[in-house]
Design a protein around this nucleic acid. Structure first.
Lengths: 236, 236
DNA sequence: TCAAAAGTGTTGCATCTACACCCATGT
DNA sequence: ACATGGGTGTAGATGCAACACTTTTGA
């Protein structure tokens, strides 16, 4: 039996980047389509689901192909299957992923140095997205909504940061996600009380008073996924 | 291009029923499989996604075929696509739905009177589920987790109740979902402060002091779905 | 010594929780 | 009248937001 329905996997890949203003902003990579439909428009990275591959693996694979990186967080966003969302009938399983700021910076620098940057991949800041193919604009909007929700009750923001970071780094990530500033004093108490962080005995120096570096408490889950096992999620 | 991946839609259909003990318990309908794989085992209602139908419509349709009813709440749960979850490669788009207690009671009574109840459909209480086909036990567990989470920050519990209800009715629904008893006084204040309820000038009489009947405030969304439009959800 | 970020203390307000208490009705 | 659930009041605990304040460094 053939249904003439094809299954695609796409991924909203998010990271933090330092904007020219100096503030941290959310950014994501898009791929320039070379074929119809929507040729020459930007779209989410993705591809067809193959028979031998699970959706979450397919998402991680296209993420690696697009960015050369592996995600620090990867979770299913939604399955989009409206009849009219594509000229042919396509069900898209969409995932969202977080990448560490320093990983992305290193990878982009390596690409620049080698001149081997993928030709049709470009990073866009979240406030300056181009016109998007299919319903991808709506999908990104939904991914941001989920991220902003989830940051309130889980540790997802840590997915943007390197292994060791200051409380100011973490607060900056929260502020970029939520789009508003947070009280440093209250932020410190909340995050310390959560038990998610382990203080190290190292400090970041360089400007003014040194700030203590923290690392994740790996005993605490990055995000509560409920009864869904780790095979449905990827956390590094 | 044929992927040899088929797309199915299944639905976790939940309602409240009065158990023999008199307490309200969650219950759901299951379908006895007649074909391999998993012949003679119970499974979630569902079927193949057809080319002309959106997933949410397919879910509502199989729900109607199984129960003769339309849901008061219907939302996507998750897309399951692990390679080994079925002998052939199947991606299942799973939805979860809420039915009104009184609708279900009426429909079951009608079936009993006419003798036309669907032969291979049976309702099970959540604490007494049979062995289930595929990964459906895990799916139901996840649906219950979502329901219990969502009841904390949205009005979904109202999906179980008729148009007019007492605060004790609503509290009983919450207690059945959460599996613990709630303080009537504090429950009243919380739900009144939420602005979700409109008091009517009618009362339910019959035992002791009459209780005021309330109705939903339809200006308030049943559950915050974020940027996903109503075409991805069905609310009655 | 001064600016600026790190980090601590304190106060007030809103919310939750437990439980005492009053109210209205059928039996 | 009384048992029972409907409905109100209130004191203590907890959590959060605002902001004053101290500490530590680089310049």
């Amino acid at each position: 039996m053939t249904q003439s329905i094809r299954v695609a996997v796409s991924t909203v890949i998010l990271t933090l980047r330092r904007a020219e203003s100096g503030a941290a902003v959310l950014a994501l990579p898009l791929v320039l389509r070379t074929r119809e439909p929507f040729a020459d428009q930007w779209a989410l990275p993705g591809g067809w689901l193959t028979a031998a591959e699970s959706p979450v693996d397919a998402s991680a694979r296209t993420l690696a192909e697009t960015t050369g990186l592996s995600p620090s967080y990867l979770e299913q966003l939604y399955a989009f299957g409206a009849v009219d969302r594509s000229p042919t009938r396509v069900v898209s399983l969409v995932y969202w992923a977080l990448l560490r700021q320093d990983d992305v910076d290193a990878q982009i620098a390596a690409h620049r140095a080698s001149g081997l940057a993928p030709e049709n991949v470009r990073w866009f800041e979240i406030d300056a997205l181009p016109e998007l193919a299919f319903d991808h604009a709506k999908i990104i909007e939904y991914a941001l909504w989920r991220l902003r929700n989830k940051v309130g009750y889980s540790r997802v923001a840590h997915g943007f940061l390197p292994a060791e970071f200051t409380l100011a780094d973490l607060r900056e990530a929260y502020e970029a996600i939520l789009g508003r500033s947070l009280d440093p004093a209250n932020f410190r108490r909340q995050v310390e009380a959560s038990g998610n962080l382990l203080p190290t005995d190292r400090f970041r120096t360089g400007s003014h008073r040194p700030a203590r570096l923290y690392r994740y408490n790996t005993d605490v889950a990055l995000a509560d996924r409920g009864p869904l096992g780790p095979e449905e999620t990827s956390i590094r």
